[in-house]
């Protein structure tokens, strides 16, 4: 697929979705966009997530295929690397945890450069992907957790603490939350990176641009709503709280911007199980990460191997003992 198709297809899909919700709100479909679609989206999200994880879990992993970058455990006098070539489940779990929390594999990202003036290939460390990714994910997490203030009553203290830290700079009223701005900047960086690096641009599909545009639009509408075109936040919380307590009601007078926001979030939730966003669950189920590298110590039997009928030496001897003796061949059992 060409860059133009991938990029504009995703872009216009998001623009189209925004147009749909604005027209819908104009036609007084607040209940549809504020209640029906969010419920449907969350349902699709959970059913899809469970379905895919269970499907993954049902596929056999006949071989140990961990990717390692350290010495494997073998002889007792050879020092081995516990983390990079985990031998036990515990160390494999530690490695997965560090991957999830620190994105260690992205930290190893390299860049290939053909040096000018000669056919010389060089590899450079390239930490920008790691930085962009970790900033993006953590700011997204903070933003998500902060939103619990709309879904809980009373608001739990960890959310209040998070708000305090996030609003540390006390810029403006309502106070600026750093995480929201950082999220928007980070997702913009990840998009620009995709567009400007030729190899990356070449392999990018609509499925790569769509989540980026959606998340960008979600962050942008959120920022707009908080700082510029404010909505009646008490009415918004009445709606969101009514959703999680299963007594849905749509208060009057919430601006269209809110419906754009919640609709795009719903779209993202519903899209989640069908897309690469499933890496949220997939990272835990990657056989190259979560398997201990113990092929030398434990035998792993392929579950789809047919049962092999074996004829052991003991059975062979039992069968031919007399004949062997007669021929003068030594036997183990007399």
């Amino acid at each position: 697929m060409s860059f133009n198709f991938s990029f504009y297809f995703a872009l216009f899909t998001v623009v189209g979705l925004i147009a749909v919700v604005l027209i819908g709100v104009g036609a007084h479909l607040q209940f549809l966009f504020g209640v029906v679609i969010p419920y449907l989206a969350v349902l699709i999200f959970f059913v899809g997530l469970l379905y895919r994880v269970v499907k993954w879990a049902r596929s056999p992993v006949p071989f140990r295929i961990p990717t390692t970058c350290g010495q494997q455990k073998s002889l007792p006098w050879i020092k081995y690397n516990k983390l990079e070539s985990p031998f036990t489940n515990f160390w494999a779990a530690v490695r997965v945890a560090l991957e999830v929390l620190c994105f260690r594999s992205l930290f190893r990202n390299t860049k290939v450069v053909l040096t000018k003036g000669g056919p010389k290939l060089s590899y450079f460390s390239d930490k920008w992907l790691w930085l962009g990714a970790i900033v993006f994910h953590y700011s997204f997490l903070v933003v998500l957790l902060r939103h619990l203030r709309f879904f809980t009553q009373p608001v739990p203290s960890f959310v209040q603490l998070l708000e305090k830290v996030d609003g540390f700079f006390e810029i403006g009223v309502p106070g600026l939350f750093v995480s929201g701005v950082v999220l928007f900047v980070a997702v913009t960086y990840l998009l620009l990176r995709r567009i400007t690096i030729p190899q990356l641009r070449y392999i990018s599909l609509p499925a790569d641009y769509f989540p980026l545009f959606t998340i960008m639009a979600i962050a942008f509408t959120g920022i707009l709503m908080r700082y510029f075109f404010k909505v009646d936040i008490v009415a918004v919380k009445k709606l969101t709280l009514s959703l999680v307590t299963f007594h849905p009601e749509v208060p009057e007078g919430i601006g269209g911007l809110f419906y754009v926001h919640i609709f795009l979030v719903s779209v993202l939730f519903a899209y989640f199980p069908f897309s690469k966003l499933m890496h949220m669950a997939g990272v835990f189920l990657s056989p190259t990460r979560n398997l201990p590298n113990n092929s030398r110590a434990a035998r792993h039997i392929n579950p789809w191997n047919p049962v092999v009928k074996v004829h052991t030496y003991e059975e062979y001897e039992d069968e031919f003992r007399e004949k062997m003796k007669a021929a003068g061949i030594p036997v183990e059992k007399e």
């Binding site: 619990l148 809980t152 009553q153």
Partner: peptide, 13 residues
Amino acid sequence: LTFPFWYNLGRAA
């Protein structure tokens, strides 16, 4: 992930 759903159970906001 379902925290908001069960957190509010039995609490009349």
